[in-house]
Every structure is written in structure tokens, then in C-alpha cells.
């Protein structure tokens, strides 16, 4: 039972960081939804705000780590081109894979090699790699507003609804990215 370095990073990116973000959403959303002065006492609002500040900033940090690790660590392995003409600079394992016409080390090339799987890249991965970046931007705005306005969110309905909408959009973007990430990893796993 072991994982390669690539598999480990893919797990960290998707199943640890990405999953934490998605799982944390419901808890923070419930807090935001219930943050109304007619429902909660002043002491309750203060406790709720404390949880919201921790929750939203944790999600913001996790969202940034997810997209940065995905883009700069995992994605280059996904999009690496298989060597056409083995050269001295090409690693021994890449040469061996090319000689066997084995594209499984090159997920993008593997998916694009067949019309049955190419849309996992041309639609799925192309959308995922972009839409994911909306999530940290939007949740950072949410975390900032929660930290600055605190209990005022319980009184200002427009502000609370604006924050909740941005938060749902942030989650939706992460969910699309996570869903396609899971499907693409199933169709062409990183080894």
C-alpha cells in the first residue's frame, strides 16, 4: 500500500484541501442563515460571529491552497506532453513509457487520444481549471465582510444576503471543479 509523489499531491489537492472546503460549506452556511437579530440573542450573535470568522477564513485559506496546489503542482503533471522523439534530456521513465506507447503517464494526452474520452479534457478539465479560481476570490470577500461587520450582519439583511450569495457562488464554483476533478481522475488518474 503506497502512493507515488504525484498521487500523494493529487490526494492532498482534491481529497484533503478540496474536500475540506466543500464539507465546511454547510456549517458556515447554517451560521450565516441563522444570523438574524430576531432569531438570536446578542450573546448568541457574538458566538456565531466568532465561529463565522474562523470558518470563513479557514475556507479562504483552504481555497487558495487548493487552487495554487492544483495549478502549480498537479496540473503540470496532467498536461505534460509525452516525448515524441526521446532525447537525452528526457527521463528514462518517460522514454520507456513512450516506447510502449503508454500514455497513462500523461493524462491529458491519454484523454485526447480517443474521441470517447477527449471531452473529459476539452470540456471537463478546461472548465475545471478556470472555474475553480472564482472560489477563493469570492470566499475571501465573504471572510473580509464577516470579519469587519460582525454582528451588523444580523441587522443588515441586504448585506447578509449579499454575503450568502457570494458564498453560495464560491461553493458552486468549487463543487463544479471538484466534481470534474473526481471524474477526470477516474478516467485518467495521475500515477
Amino acid at each position: 500500500m503506497s502512493l507515488t509523489e504525484r498521487e500523494l499531491w493529487a490526494v492532498l489537492h482534491g481529497m484533503c484541501l478540496g474536500a475540506v472546503f466543500l464539507l465546511a460549506f454547510s456549517g458556515v452556511m447554517v451560521e450565516l442563515w441563522g444570523l438574524r437579530k430576531e432569531l438570536v440573542t446578542e450573546a448568541g450573535i457574538q458566538k456565531s460571529v466568532r465561529r463565522l470568522i474562523i470558518g470563513t477564513w479557514t475556507m479562504a485559506v483552504v481555497a487558495w491552497l487548493t487552487v495554487i496546489s492544483g495549478t502549480y503542482i498537479v496540473y503540470p503533471w496532467y498536461r505534460a506532453k509525452p516525448p515524441v522523439q526521446p532525447a537525452a534530456a528526457v527521463s528514462a521513465s518517460a522514454v520507456a513509457a513512450a516506447e510502449k506507447n503508454d500514455l497513462t503517464q500523461y493524462p491529458k494526452a491519454y484523454l485526447m487520444a480517443s474521441p470517447n474520452t477527449s471531452q473529459w479534457h476539452t470540456f471537463g478539465m478546461e472548465w475545471k481549471e478556470h472555474v475553480a479560481w472564482f472560489s477563493p476570490i469570492l470566499v475571501t470577500a465573504v471572510a473580509f465582510i464577516v470579519s469587519r461587520y460582525r454582528g451588523q450582519l444580523a441587522q443588515d439583511k441586504m448585506l447578509r444576503w449579499s454575503v450568502m450569495t457570494l458564498f453560495v457562488l464560491s461553493f458552486a464554483a468549487a463543487a463544479v471543479a471538484g466534481l470534474f476533478g473526481a471524474f477526470i481522475t477516474k478516467a485518467a488518474p495521475l500515477h
Binding site: I145, R148, L166
Partner: peptide
């Protein structure tokens, strides 16, 4: 609400 508006519009 200016700072909140700034954060939302910047996003």
C-alpha cells in the same frame, strides 16, 4: 457599508 461594497465590487 462602503468597505463591504468595495469588497463585493472588487470580487
Amino acid at each position: 457599508n462602503g468597505p463591504a461594497a468595495a469588497a463585493i465590487l472588487a470580487a
